[in-house]
């Protein structure tokens, strides 16, 4: 039954498969830490995947593809910032419409390039390190975007918790008025990190179409991952490392679903392809449940539960989704 199940291969596939999702999750974590919900993720990823694929095919340069995808992600995010931060429109409405619109835009503009040959960011083992036993294969035998995603996790943590810019960003997300009282411009910070987060989301699109799920077609394999990234941000309690771990967990579920397919040939393959999505959302539901009044009351009575819920529950940035009132 367990034919062809190799732990190392699975671990390596998880690290590689999660790369785009890690980028998107980190991008959205930054954005939400500044208090803005960018709900347009799902469409943005598809659009930037298309842009990256087309540009890389035409120019023959992978770098150009990645650059353009980041620019596309930043542009869509700039729209979200413009409409929600400057015009005070509902972040949910704007993000949702943009997510549908950008996806259709991707399929419309990209249709003539569908199923054409394009460049692929191939495997580039790290010299020396890839020769290490176990870790070499799991961590150091990947393509450049995968390394990038791993570095980004560490960088995002360092940026958020160890730099003065990261501190300012967290301040705005927690309390815009207090940030303003300390000489920080909350609107500016929100716009900057919405756009920066959008650029990371854009990069994740390129990581899909040029690396993890190479190529472009309809439907692109990356559809739906934007919603997963949004759920992962909550699941990861707005902490970059925890959110990234969530992305690896999701990638693990996806890899396992392929194995399950061979173990349960009677169940149609499509079910396993879809299964990780609801599973993830329900994990999220459980982690939200911890916040509920009943759960808190219950935890008050059982000290052991209290410790557990404290560990799981992490409140969202206090100004998340709110617009700043001006007089």
């Amino acid at each position: 039954m367990m034919d062809g199940f190799d732990m190392l291969l699975v671990a390596s596939a998880v690290i590689a498969g999660a790369a785009p999702l890690v980028m998107a999750t980190l991008g959205e974590t930054l954005t939400e830490r500044a208090g803005v919900v960018n709900l347009s993720l799902d469409g943005t990823i598809v659009l930037s995947a298309m842009a990256a694929f087309v540009v890389a095919s035409l120019s023959g340069s992978l770098l150009a593809g990645f650059a353009v995808s980041a620019a596309v992600g930043a542009c869509v995010a700039a729209l979200v910032a413009l409409f929600s931060v400057r015009l005070g429109m509902s972040q949910v409405a704007v993000g949702f419409v943009l997510t549908l619109m950008t996806r259709d835009l991707a399929y419309f503009l990209g249709s003539q390039y569908a199923r054409t040959e394009g460049p692929i960011s191939g495997s580039a083992p790290v010299p020396v390190l890839s020769g290490m036993p176990v870790l070499g294969q799991v961590l150091f035998n990947h393509s450049v975007p995968v390394y990038l995603s791993m570095i980004m996790v560490a960088f995002a943590w360092w940026y958020l918790y160890r730099t003065s810019w990261g501190l300012r960003l967290r301040c705005v997300g927690e309390n815009m008025e207090a940030a303003y009282a300390r000489g920080i411009d909350p609107d500016l910070v929100r716009v900057v990190y919405t756009v920066a987060g959008g650029a990371l989301v854009g990069l994740s699109g390129a990581a899909f179409s040029l690396c993890t799920k190479p190529g472009w077609g309809q439907p692109q394999g990356c559809e739906g991952s934007g919603w997963i990234a949004l759920a992962l941000v909550i699941f990861g309690a707005w902490h970059p490392v925890r959110a990234a771990l969530g992305a690896y967990l999701f990638a693990f579920l996806q890899v396992m679903s392929i194995h399950f397919q061979s173990w349960f040939p009677d169940v149609p393959a499509q079910v396993f392809q879809v299964a990780p999505f609801p599973l993830m959302i329900f994990l999220l539901a459980v982690s939200t449940l911890v916040h509920s009044e009943e759960a808190k009351m219950l935890a008050e009575r059982h000290p052991l539960l209290r410790i557990l819920t404290r560990g799981l529950a992490q409140a969202p940035p206090l100004s998340l989704g709110k617009a700043r009132s001006r007089d």
């Binding site: 309390n175 409140a315 940035p317």
Partner: peptide, 23 residues
């Protein structure tokens, strides 16, 4: 108090003060 409840005492102390890029 106009502060940032989820952040630590040290971070609240630092926020808004003059500091280097990575203090």
């Amino acid at each position: 108090p106009l502060d940032f409840p989820p952040l630590t005492v040290l971070e609240n102390f630092m926020a808004g003060q003059r500091m280097k890029a990575w203090p």
